Simulated scan of single mutants.
Amino acid sequence: MLINCAAYQDGRKLADIDIDSISDYVARPECFVWVALKDPDPDELAVMKHEFDLHELAIEDAQHGHQRPKIEEYGESLFAVMHTVEKDDDGELLIGEVDVFVGRNYVLSVRRNTRTGFQNVRARCEREPELLKEGSAFVLYALADDIVDRYFPIIDSLSSEIEALEDRIFERNDSAASRAIIQDLYSLKRRLVILQHHIAPLQEAISKFTGGRIPNICEGMQAYFRDVYDHLERIVRTIDGRREMVVTAVQVNLGMISLAEGEVTKRLGSFAALFAVPTMIAGIYGMNFEKIPELHYKYGYPLCLIVMLTVDIVLYWRFRKSNWL
């Protein structure tokens, strides 16, 4: 699906154009054309390949999708793959892909499985004609910057989930609640791993524009791409920190379960002791021996009960004082 197709010159939009006119504007050295596609079919990509003279391997990657985030050079053009991350209504992560072809006189962006478009990026570029004069390189930066900025709300929401789970850990929970906490922590860790898998490679790709040999198309844009790289570095470090927090939370939760089991064991042991002492005394006097002391004593029975009761009262007081009961 064609979303937008426009021509720009000297940082300003000339006009929205149709596909058949693309080659006319691309032929002008002072112009560049920006085309946006959504979930295109092979025929649409074939037309773009013809209009912009795109590399066969780059077209193949864009057509099949599911590429690792990367930036590759094909002669005087670039092919960038970036992943978008969104959340569905159930809080699960939705991974999309944006493929960007960049040449001296064109930008072709192809997005797949992405709910939110990039109309705001086009509007931003058109509001900044001084920067848009840089041409297609600035558009590539603006797209990358917007995609990276969309990662921050996802990270913030996962951080809020971690804080909520940490509060739940220290509440008095039964075994079912503790099991649910562990399941939620594992789900959170899985989503953090997914995030790192789709974000960390982009950091490595963007680093190509921040030092060393810079592609000719992006000369003069190093400072802008360095800003994107810094954001990615911050995000990756945050993800690593949140993963460590999840691991720690799992360990703390298991520790709390062990403490709760220990409390139950102490209570059971305390009640067992309260019954054990009277049972021992009663068992001794229940033996079939005639020479048991005080066996025929007139007040032996009530005295024995008093001793049992006194011992239990003392034990109960000690257990209560030690917080075992």
Rank of each mutant, 00 (worst) to 15 (best):
residue 219 E to D: 10
residue 237 R to G: 07
residue 228 V to F: 06
residue 244 E to F: 00
residue 217 I to A: 12
residue 200 A to P: 03
residue 238 T to C: 10
residue 228 V to G: 00
residue 244 E to A: 09
residue 239 I to G: 06
residue 227 D to N: 15
residue 232 L to C: 04
residue 204 E to Y: 06
residue 203 Q to D: 06
residue 197 H to I: 08
residue 211 G to C: 08
residue 231 H to I: 08
residue 216 N to T: 14
residue 204 E to I: 04
residue 238 T to R: 12
residue 205 A to P: 04
residue 227 D to M: 10
residue 192 L to T: 04
residue 226 R to I: 05
residue 229 Y to W: 04
residue 233 E to V: 12
residue 192 L to Q: 05
residue 215 P to N: 05
residue 240 D to T: 14
residue 239 I to A: 07
residue 216 N to I: 13
residue 237 R to Y: 00
residue 227 D to C: 09
residue 213 R to N: 10
residue 243 R to L: 13
residue 208 K to I: 14
residue 217 I to C: 03
residue 196 Q to V: 02
residue 215 P to H: 07
residue 216 N to Y: 10
residue 225 F to G: 00
residue 199 I to A: 00
residue 226 R to K: 14
residue 196 Q to S: 11
residue 208 K to W: 03
residue 234 R to L: 08
residue 195 L to G: 04
residue 241 G to F: 11
residue 217 I to V: 14
residue 223 A to F: 13
residue 213 R to L: 10
residue 200 A to R: 08
residue 215 P to G: 07
residue 218 C to E: 03
residue 241 G to T: 12
residue 228 V to N: 01
residue 225 F to P: 02
residue 218 C to M: 08
residue 209 F to H: 00
residue 197 H to D: 13
residue 210 T to M: 13
residue 217 I to N: 10
residue 241 G to A: 15
residue 223 A to L: 13
residue 212 G to N: 09
residue 231 H to C: 11
residue 193 V to M: 15
residue 196 Q to K: 13
residue 219 E to L: 15
residue 195 L to H: 05
residue 199 I to V: 14
residue 232 L to D: 00
residue 242 R to W: 12
residue 226 R to P: 03
residue 225 F to L: 04
residue 210 T to G: 03
residue 225 F to R: 01
residue 230 D to P: 09
residue 235 I to T: 09
residue 235 I to F: 08
residue 231 H to G: 05
residue 201 P to Y: 08
residue 193 V to E: 09
residue 210 T to L: 00
residue 196 Q to M: 11
residue 239 I to F: 02
residue 200 A to K: 09
residue 195 L to E: 05
residue 213 R to A: 11
residue 203 Q to E: 11
residue 233 E to G: 13
residue 223 A to D: 11
residue 233 E to T: 14
residue 244 E to I: 00
residue 241 G to S: 15
residue 205 A to L: 02
residue 195 L to P: 01
residue 218 C to D: 01
residue 231 H to M: 05
residue 229 Y to G: 02
residue 226 R to H: 12
residue 219 E to P: 01
residue 200 A to W: 02
residue 243 R to Y: 08
